[in-house]
Structures are given as structure tokens and as C-alpha cells.
Design a protein around this nucleic acid. Structure first.
Lengths: 146, 146
DNA sequence: CTTAAACGATTCAATCTTTGAACGATTTGG
DNA sequence: CCAAATCGTTCAAAGATTGAATCGTTTAAG
């Protein structure tokens, strides 16, 4: 008979911790009137992995119509620029503006600060091990992993 | 100037990985007509940390009214039993039935299977390090941590 | 060329999840 | 004994995301 607890399972812990951390990150973004997905979009643009809205939607695993509203908001803030692709006028090409870069940098700093809080008191080796394994897992699951 | 990428941040990785893993776990639960929160409730009951609906709601960081519907469904499945607390008839006391225990065991097995997939190919030491650090983080953040 | 099919973006209604406010029953403290 | 607090429940509303329909544009087949 298997007596492993659900709570000791990686799946459960990653899920709950992920939710908690996202919630906290979200709270820090609230001041800018942004949600994590907005930052996800900025990140895609910075990585240069996709520029058209449809490609971005696929990369983010999200409906194309959602990208529209995320982009609406970001454009409103001046964080991105929307331009018709001249070689295919159906496409909207999104590009980061300088303001967008700064916004992303600010939010990245907020995330880094969260990291400090999370790892405060952990052995530096532990922290590094965590970083390393998460990078591996991200890579294996098709998530951005530098 | 700080050039750390958001994607290399623990906060971001925990968030995205958590979402992916929860999604996958959710898919395996779908067959039972359950969602992760249902399992979360069963887990609380198994841990014995709380039995009244309000206490459960607090522990789960969720509105009391949500616990009502989660419990409705679980009762319908025969996984839990709802009884008025005789010493305070306002309270509903929820208890796991034998069927509930079995259901939880099945779902725990599904989570464990997910764990295998996630860690397949990782160094055993890496896996153990991950488990250990996540347990620590869970504990520090008020999450169930055995 | 012309035209039908495919495509990308957009809008909008519908869905799903969760919350908050209102209510009824019960308990508690003054 | 009564007013205030508590617990569970219902239900309407909020927030996030999707899917279907539409418009302009491109592509490919005849």
C-alpha cells in the first residue's frame, strides 16, 4: 500500500507554490495596472521569439483574442508599438518601445526582489540548485529558459 | 544597469511551471469530474488540520461560499460526509469517507506519476535537492509541508 | 486574371471560476 | 433575555479567458 502524501508530491508543491508566487508578483504589478500576462507578452517581445500577434498567442498558449486586449493595454501605456506588417498587411507587428523596456526592467526588478524574499535564509548552494533544476524543468517543458 | 532576464527569475519560473503542472494535474483529474481545489479540500481533511467549512476556507485561502460548492460535489460523490456539529449546530463538520480516502489515494498516485515524468532523466541528487528545497519553501509560506 | 479558400486581427457574446453581499439559523456575552 | 457575532448557504456580480462571427488581406488554382 502506497502511503505517499499528495502534499509531498512535486506536482502539488509546484502548483501551490506557483500560485502563491504568482499572486505575490501580481500584487506588485497592480500599481502599474498590469497583470502577469502583460509582462509575459513584453517578455516574448524582448526575446524576439515572435512579433505577430498570432505567433505570440501560440507561444503564450493563449487565445489570439486575449493577445488583442493585452496589446491594447500595453499600447495604451506606450510600452509597445503596433504596426501593420508591410509585406503582409493582415499582420500586426508588435515591438517594444524604450518605455516598454523600462517597464519590463522595473517588473523584472520586482521579481528579483521577490526572489530574495523567497530564498532569504536558504543556503546559497540550495538556492543555486533550485535555480538550476527549475531552469532544466522549464527547458524540458517548452518554457522560456534563456 | 541590471540585465537579468525576467525568465531567469525564480518567481517567474515557479509561476509558469506551477501553471503548467497544475494544468497537467487538472487534466488527469478531469475523468473524475474533479478540479484541483476538490483535491485540496480532501487533503485538508486527511491532514486533520480543519474540519469546519469556515476553517477549511481560511486554510485554503478561498471564500467560504466556494467551500460550499466544493463540498457539495464531494458529498455527491460520496467522498466526504457532512454532519452538523452537535456542540455548535451552526457548524458543518466534514469527514473523509473510505471512498474519499481511496479517491485521494488515486489522485495522489496520479500526481506521483506526474512527478516521474517531470523528473525523468534528472540526476537523482538533483531531484532530491528539488524536493528538499520545495519542502522548505512550502513550509516558510504557510503551505502544507508534512 | 479571377475567384475561392485560407489567414490574421478584431469584436463580442458566452463560459468558467471565484468572490461578496444578503439571509436564516444558531450561539454568545452582557 | 436580547443584541451582536458566527457559520453556512444562496445568488448575483466580477474577472479572466475562450470561441464564433466578421472584416480586410493574401494565396493558390483554374
Amino acid at each position: 500500500m502506497n502511503d505517499v502524501k499528495l502534499t509531498s508530491t512535486l506536482a502539488f508543491r509546484l502548483g501551490t507554490l506557483g500560485a502563491v508566487v504568482t499572486e505575490r508578483f501580481s500584487a506588485r504589478l497592480a500599481g502599474h495596472g498590469l497583470k502577469p500576462k502583460h509582462i509575459g507578452l513584453l517578455t516574448v517581445l524582448e526575446s524576439g521569439t515572435a512579433t505577430s500577434q498570432l505567433d505570440i498567442a501560440k507561444l503564450m498558449n493563449v487565445a489570439p483574442s486575449l493577445v488583442v486586449s493585452l496589446a491594447d493595454r500595453l499600447e495604451e501605456l506606450g510600452a509597445i508599438q503596433r504596426e501593420r506588417d508591410l509585406s503582409d498587411r493582415r499582420r500586426q507587428t508588435l515591438t517594444l518601445t524604450e518605455e516598454g523596456r523600462e517597464l519590463l526592467a522595473t517588473c523584472t526588478a520586482a521579481a528579483a526582489e521577490l526572489d530574495s524574499e523567497l530564498t532569504d535564509g536558504l543556503d546559497p548552494e540550495e538556492t543555486e540548485a533550485l535555480r538550476s533544476v527549475l531552469r532544466t524543468l522549464a527547458r524540458r517543458n517548452g518554457l522560456p529558459a534563456d
